[in-house]
């Protein structure tokens, strides 16, 4: 049976002692990366880097080589900025620390907010949620259930309300009540919908009128099963609301979410969280090494 760890052994064996990578090995590497949704462009970038390293440090040992491969890919994933910690118990320099959550339809925004509020609360933070998706049927009710599960306060004005007004209200209320963390949900929207995207810009701007610099984090949620279109999503959302972090959901399936490598690299934005299920505790702080290992360690075929 063909497994990805088998592939790593193979690539190491073929590469050791050579100053050029054979085409067959490159084809295999390409297969692993492409089938993980890394995309052609980033895959070529990884291959270029590997070839350069092999040409430079020839006669490397097998274990060194595996590390090189991992390193080169890990390197593309940019690191978190100290000003915006992903850890839930970290000290936050803003009070309240306002996080706006955005993304296309159905990626997992509301669920991720539910999980995040639980994590922050567990870490001793006082959390407040804003039901900024006033559009989708059942969206407010869905977030309400999450707020109850997590035991945090929800600010809402019901379906059909002006989302910017909800965001304004939430941040104002958090400020007056001395909340530590505010998470504002927004309706899913496709990035090519101009009017909806500019509405998002407006939602963002009003928060800054209540608390200086808010939102301090704009989290773009991406679904791990999404292919190359995620790059367009990241670009369009960044243009309008300046995305500062990524959350990659649904990694509990077989999709690898490799597109975040190119996004992180090209747009200089860190991946902060991963979603691994539908339960409240199914969220983890992103870890680069673990993510890269997972690209290679899981089986590439299910036959």
């Amino acid at each position: 049976e063909k497994t990805r760890s088998g592939f790593l052994d193979k690539i190491s064996k073929t590469l050791v002692g050579k100053d050029k990578v054979d085409d067959e090995v490159l084809d295999d590497l390409e297969e692993v990366l492409i089938t993980s949704d890394v995309g052609v462009k980033t895959t070529l970038e990884v291959i270029r880097r590997i070839e350069e390293r092999v040409a430079r440090d020839k006669y490397v040992s097998s274990s060194e080589l595996q590390n090189i491969l991992r390193e080169e890919i890990t390197d593309l994933l940019i690191e978190n900025e100290p000003g915006r910690p992903a850890e839930f118990d970290a000290d936050l320099s803003n009070k309240p620390h306002v996080i706006m959550v955005v993304g296309v339809n159905g990626v997992g925004k509301t669920t991720t907010i539910g999980k995040l509020s639980h994590m922050y609360k567990e870490a001793g933070k006082n959390v407040m949620l804003g039901a900024g998706d006033t559009f989708r049927a059942g969206a407010v009710e869905q977030l309400k259930i999450w707020s109850e599960r997590a035991g945090v306060t929800l600010i809402q004005q019901g379906q059909g309300a002006d989302p910017a007004a909800v965001a304004f209200d939430t941040v104002a209320s958090a400020k007056s009540k001395g909340a530590d963390v505010v998470l504002v949900d927004t309706a899913g929207r496709l990035h090519n919908r101009k009017a909806l995207m500019s509405e998002l810009g407006k939602i963002k701007r009003v928060m800054g009128k209540v608390v200086e610099g808010a939102p301090h984090e704009v989290l773009l949620v991406l679904d791990a099963s999404t292919g190359q279109n995620a790059m367009q999503q990241a670009k369009a959302f960044t243009e309008v609301v300046d995305v500062t972090g990524l959350a990659l959901t649904k990694l509990d399936g077989t999709a690898k979410g490799g597109i975040v490598i190119g996004i992180s690299h090209e747009m200089s934005v860190p991946v902060k969280y991963i979603g691994v299920g539908e339960k409240i505790e199914d969220l983890q702080v992103f870890e680069r090494a673990g993510f890269v290992n997972a690209l290679f360690s899981r089986q590439s075929k299910d036959n």
């Binding site: 089938t35 159905g106 099963s225 999404t226 190359q228 399936g253 077989t254 999709a255 690898k256 299910d302």
Partner: peptide, 15 residues
């Protein structure tokens, strides 16, 4: 199926 699905579409459809 979400039209934005990437490479994993084959695994999910097959299952």
């Amino acid at each position: 199926v979400d039209a934005m699905t990437g490479q994993d579409a084959v695994n999910t459809a097959r299952q």
